[in-house]
Design a protein around this nucleic acid. Structure first.
Lengths: 263, 263
DNA sequence: TATCTAGTTTCATTATTTGGAACTACTACA
DNA sequence: TGTAGTAGTTCCAAATAATGAAACTAGATA
């Protein structure tokens, strides 16, 4: 048997498989039947069946007997609370986002990178007050969002190539970058410029300016963006906000720096 | 080998063990060293070591090389988003909580039961605007909180006895119920009364009135509470709010009822 | 340098996972 | 009512992965 044919997603023995199944259930946005999962799972029926049983047993999934459907379980909500507090930038960045939000009347996103994808961990909306859990945890593509490109640009070479490789390059709009080469060039440009733009690459009419959050050592720990619509503002207008965006990114980096497990 | 000597926490093979380890890491509220986990883990060094490696590999934990500490990983945040939206009452209850919140100038909690413990899934605070993810996912004890008792009271007999058995009965205040019998009696009383009170049982000066959320069939799916301080209001005052509390609980139950996977 | 502690690797043994296939329970259709 | 199909569950021998005692390594401490 070849040694190269295990997908990275699926490695790591039984636990890896179980977590992969968990992901598959979570990926559908509604409760799923056994068969739905079976369809896009690499595992044989019996195996999948037992993985689902185990996960349900453990409270990671919930099973609805009428309808026979599985959904992510509340044990995850409990675990996530602690993950969000400890491993995300959000709690640390909160005051700085509040400050930026008061300076800028636009939507602000705070994101981190999770396996080449953008994970939004906090958000401020100009209009509506705050709307959290429902937004934090959302994922988006890396290659066609401002925060995604800003973060990828500042990964080290290996990690960056890896991330470039894992994008889908789906053409969302006419402006979407649809090849690894185009993306690679864009990332180089972002590095020299210091900020990334989303030029309606993900959604027509939506543009943004994004900055990476970099620790003094240079390590990239996340990104921050200011989003607006073309009806409302232009990229030039967004450039006006760059100093505030960068200042906020720096403040967050500073807060993250001076923070290693207070005894 | 006996069949009875596996703790329920730890059953379910390797996956169960891995998830147990995940819980242990999440339970500490700061990043933990290998040894910290080893201390309160039932697993031998080598086993624990590999479980941690697997989990880290999978992004369920993050490992910080300086300091050699583990913390819950951001993959959890992503999973939780979908769990919160699908398996918690919160998204469904949101408009009803908003309504109650506007009627009542007090703190409101929405909770569900997770293995005998209270899991808060949403919150409205009279003073501060909204403060979500940081609150949702929090856990609390069942035997000494209003929502905890309200939920336990309406479990079926088996599940209720099970929950009663799993409480710690730590004496937080002079009013804390500290024995299964006392709790059992209180739960019977709650069932006859329809609401539960927290009479400074968890924290001195903090009282609340809580109602279960019951589907028409009688199944308990969560609880709702209005909290205040003794300086501010008395239990009698809280009784004035009972109709609104119950109405809100009913509304949420109604919303939950008329909601089975819309195709 | 010696001693201790924390973390990592090894490897033969053991136990669990695996998955093809058989089975059951429903549903749909003739 | 019978027959075919679909969805979910159980079985069991073979294959594989997990186990854990012990040896080892790297840092820290004295």
């Amino acid at each position: 048997m070849g040694a190269m044919d295990k997908s990275p997603q699926t490695a790591d023995g039984t636990v890896g498989k179980a977590l992969h199944v968990l992901d598959m259930v979570a990926a559908h946005m509604r409760p799923v039947r056994f068969n739905d999962i079976l369809t896009d799972s690499p595992y044989p029926k019996a195996t999948l069946y037992r993985l689902l049983q185990t996960l349900t047993n453990q409270g990671m999934l919930s099973f609805d007997p009428d309808g026979g459907t599985y959904a992510p379980g509340i044990r995850l909500v409990r675990l996530a609370h602690s993950a969000w507090r400890q491993s995300s930038l959000a709690p640390l960045a909160r005051p700085h986002l509040d400050e930026l939000s008061s300076q800028v009347q636009e939507t602000i996103h705070l994101a981190q990178l999770d396996r080449g994808q953008v994970l939004y961990v906090d958000k401020r909306n100009a209009a509506t007050p705050v709307e959290m859990f429902s937004q934090a945890g959302k994922v988006g593509p890396g290659y066609c969002t401002g925060v995604g490109k800003a973060m990828m640009a500042y990964l080290n070479d290996d990690a960056r190539e890896d991330a470039i490789r894992h994008q889908s390059y789906f053409r969302h709009t006419d402006h979407t970058l649809t090849s690894p080469d185009a993306l690679r060039a864009e990332l180089a440009h972002i590095r020299s410029r210091g900020v990334a733009y989303d030029r309606e690459e993900h959604e027509v009419g939506i543009i943004c300016i994004a900055a990476p959050i970099l620790l003094p050592g240079g390590r990239m720990i996340g990104a921050l963006s200011i989003t607006t619509s073309t009806q409302h503002k232009s990229l030039r207008d967004l450039d006006q906000l760059e100093p505030m965006l960068q200042a906020c990114a720096n403040n967050i980096a500073g807060a993250a720096e001076n923070w290693q497990f207070p005894s």
